[in-house]
Amino acid sequence: MQDEPTPTELIKAVADFLRNEIAPGIKGHNAFKLRVGINALDLVTRQLALAQGSDAAEAARLKQLLGADGPLIELNRALCEKIANGAVDLQTPGLSEHLWQTTMDKLAVDQPNYASYKRELGKK
């Protein structure tokens, strides 16, 4: 078992240091790059917090939709094949809801400030 602090705590501490202590003194293109770097650390923190739960829920939905089990990536490959050959489409019960939920869960990690995401959060 690895000791504390957790990866999330470490990354947060680094991101906060860069954001609060370093960023105010950096100018020009490096300021832009630093912002991208801090955004990357924040993204990793969100993924560490959220991915386990959303991946499990996604796998459960896929199992239901496909009537099959396997690693998440294989389930996604199987769904892709079925969409490509028309075996499932937006009329298929549960498909639209599955794609929406999966995409919302990705945005929650990737870009929670994206305007389309914020708009859709207000819907069911």
Binding site: V36, N39, L99, M104, L107, D110, Q111, S116, K123
Partner: peptide, 26 residues
């Protein structure tokens, strides 16, 4: 890093595609 992080913006187009192809009520 910029290139890497742009890879994480493809999900933005996924939500926009769903808004176009499978819009939700509300």
């Amino acid at each position: 890093m910029e290139r890497a992080m742009i890879g994480r913006r493809s999900s933005e187009t996924e939500i926009d595609l769903l808004r176009l192809l499978a819009p939700r009520e509300g």
